[in-house]
């Protein structure tokens, strides 16, 4: 069994590496062929043509495109994404300092999604076609169709009018000396250092952005969990359990839920792409100051090196999330393991 796991993962990861390769090639070519000279962007409009030419040499922009790509890819594999055209600092350093903020936001979002969507799916399936189900349906349609920036703003307005003490901007109150390290995730670090005041403040601040980010995923996952639960209720082994008089509670939580979490988990993996995208919006609205805000600024300022780094890392983010979900699925679903073994 162990070997099958390994074989499956080798195959999966090879596929993902291919995806990442094509992605990097695409974004590289895009960044190079578009109008707008990176050297000119770096030096600003007042630089002379000689200076720009010298800069082009230094950045290697006078070499053939293929050679440039090979250099870029080799460096990227070693964690060097080039220098920001605006600040002149290494893109990887800049991103690394902001990544924990986004990572924390995304992790809390995913936890919220799982905590809210799966129970909602179970409940709406249990009370199918009643007012509970209809309310759940309405809720998930709203979640899917409402723009995440609107939802984020509504949460802020709600806080501004009804929860006047609730902090709605930023990650942490700057008068609190937040502990640094070891993870960069404020919620974890504050607990490690035993700073419950910091923990509470950070938790309060992360709740609304995470909720705004989770909304669309909650909508989808609720629906998918619901239909998976309903479909699996008709399976023979479930009917058998029912006829044996096994209590509903046991059937739902011990048998049905496991079987029915396969479809929503798969969707959650695909959702990751739009989750990262929506993070751009939510981070802006809540002044979060993470990786996505950095990406947005890079894009608005045409900082091409930073843009490439952001797109590549977003792709990597998506891929890592999907590998993680594949692992969970393989652990959950023995049929998948059998299929892969053949």
């Amino acid at each position: 069994m162990q070997e099958n796991y390994l074989y499956t993962f080798a195959k999966r990861i090879a596929g993902f590496v291919g995806v990442l390769f094509v992605l990097s090639l695409m974004i590289f070519v895009l960044a190079r062929v578009v109008p707008g000279d990176p050297a000119r962007i770096a030096l600003g409009p007042s630089a002379s043509q000689e200076q720009v030419d010298a800069m082009r040499m230094e950045m290697g922009l006078d070499r053939p495109l293929l050679e440039q790509y090979v250099t870029y890819a080799t460096n990227a594999l070693q964690g060097d994404l080039g220098r920001s055209l605006i600040s002149g600092r290494a893109v990887s350093t800049e991103i690394a300092s902001l990544l924990p903020a986004t990572l924390e936001l995304v992790l809390v979002t995913v936890i919220l999604m799982a905590l809210l969507a799966i129970p909602l799916g179970v409940i709406t399936a249990r009370y199918r076609n009643t007012w509970i189900d209809n309310t759940g349906r309405l809720f998930s349609i709203v979640g899917v169709t409402m723009p995440s920036f609107l939802f984020a703003i509504l949460l802020q307005l709600f806080a501004a009018y009804f929860l006047t003490d609730w902090p709605i901007i930023g990650r942490i109150d700057h008068s609190l000396a937040a502990p640094t390290g070891p993870t960069g995730l404020l919620l974890v670090d504050s607990l490690v250092h035993g700073r419950f005041d910091v923990f509470l403040d950070a938790l309060q601040r992360i709740l609304f952005p995470a909720l705004a980010l989770a909304m669309s995923g909650i909508g989808q996952i609720t629906r998918i969990t619901r239909s998976a639960m309903i479909e699996n209720q008709r399976r023979d082994h479930v009917l058998t359990l029912q006829s044996f008089g096994v209590p509903d509670r046991v059937i739902v939580f011990r048998y049905l839920l496991k079987l029915s979490s396969i479809a929503p988990l798969t969707i959650m993996g695909l959702e990751f792409a739009s989750l990262i995208g929506n993070a751009f919006v939510v981070e802006l609205v809540f002044s979060w100051g993470g990786f996505a805000s950095y990406g947005l600024n890079a894009i608005l300022q045409k900082d091409l090196n930073a843009v490439m780094g952001v797109v590549l890392l977003s792709g990597l983010f998506f891929i890592v999330a999907n590998i993680a979900i594949d692992i969970i699925l393989l652990m959950l679903d023995p049929r998948l393991r059998l299929k892969e073994a053949r």
Partner: peptide, 23 residues
């Protein structure tokens, strides 16, 4: 299918932002 798989891995909003602004 290979091409569509690659495209799926790109957060659409990030890509659209990048393309839209570079043009």
């Amino acid at each position: 299918t290979g091409l569509t798989n690659v495209m799926l891995a790109i957060p659409p909003l990030v890509m659209a932002l990048a393309v839209g602004n570079v043009l």
